[in-house]
Design a protein around this nucleic acid. Structure first.
Lengths: 172, 172
DNA sequence: ATAACTGCAAACTGTTTGCAAGCGA
DNA sequence: TCGCTTGCAAACAGTTTGCAGTTAT
């Protein structure tokens, strides 16, 4: 448990440093609110929406406002520290990027709204291939499956939320 | 050209019939507005948004209102006559389903907002495989590539819109 | 010092909804 | 006739923005 916590701290420390660097490079200022929002992102184990982020960020710094959360999310996304995951539901989801990269499939349960993620290494190659076919240059890719737990509720519904994926290898 | 038009009429006639059947089966009523909206969908060559659909539907039946368009789209989608394509931009896009099925990739140009579509037959298999891994049952899948025309504008930007795809075979 | 940043509240945008009137079966 | 459908306008939800005060550099 101690080593777990230590590992998380290390991840957070790296993220903070990367964020400071990013802000510096871009000529943006390092503010308490931005740091609080970054920390909040990494406190979340799973995918989160802006409103939840606001809540957690406020636990860290009372002064954080909704507007600042919304203004910070694009910055965090651009810095690569946070991934935006739009599954076409009501809200956009976000998730701290803990180094898994973005070649992933999201399996979204339409019953419980939870998001599972799986690795899909072939995605990058595929994006390039498809873009080239129409004369464009790939920038990002998104592969999502809407699915449901037929009748019985899925593990995720009943138990707690382990949607923070299990990597798998099969890529055909 | 005559044969082209003839073919389109045939497609439309089939769509109307399918729609009538669907409505009947579901105990929904066949109204002029719903028929006008269906026709409008098939008048659009490319992807469209609700507002554009309203405009065209009104050319067919002056009385069609925005509310009815929004209320009809889910019905049309459920009937399989129209596909909903959410690319995570501001609007949702829709497109009449002319029998190509839904195993397709969308390549979205971030410069001109146009959507190219390509066949991706492996998608269905992949959706099932991924869903199974997390214990769910696949319902629909979505594969999208955001891309840009690096520097020069893409064919689609300059010319007219041929985003109504070119099928391709490569599926690895 | 000064330009970037912030919170607040109002504005926006696409979509949904309540309601009374209309109309298909 | 009966109740599903409709148009209208108001409501909604998530997000963005203008502004005046605050703060990092």
């Amino acid at each position: 448990m101690a080593s777990e916590t230590g590992k998380q701290d290390e991840v957070l420390e790296k993220a903070r440093e990367k964020f400071r660097n990013f802000l510096g490079t871009k000529g943006l200022r390092i503010t308490n609110q931005r740091l609080a929002i970054l920390d909040a992102c990494f406190r979340m184990e799973k995918h989160f929406i802006a409103e939840q982020l606001l809540e957690v960020a406020r636990e860290i710094d009372r002064s954080v406002s909704r507007a600042t959360v919304y203004r910070s999310l694009p910055i965090l996304t651009e810095s690569g520290l946070v991934r935006e995951i739009d599954v076409g539901r009501d809200h956009k989801f976000y998730m701290a990027d803990r180094g898994r990269g973005s070649n992933r499939v999201q399996v979204v349960c339409v019953n419980c709204d939870k998001i599972f993620e799986l690795d899909a290494p072939f995605l990058e190659w595929y994006a390039n291939s498809a873009s080239q076919k129409v004369g464009l240059k790939a920038e990002s890719i998104r592969l999502q499956v809407l699915a449901r737990c037929d009748g019985h509720r899925c593990d995720n519904c009943t138990g707690d939320n382990m949607q923070e994926n299990a990597p798998h290898k099969h890529e055909h």
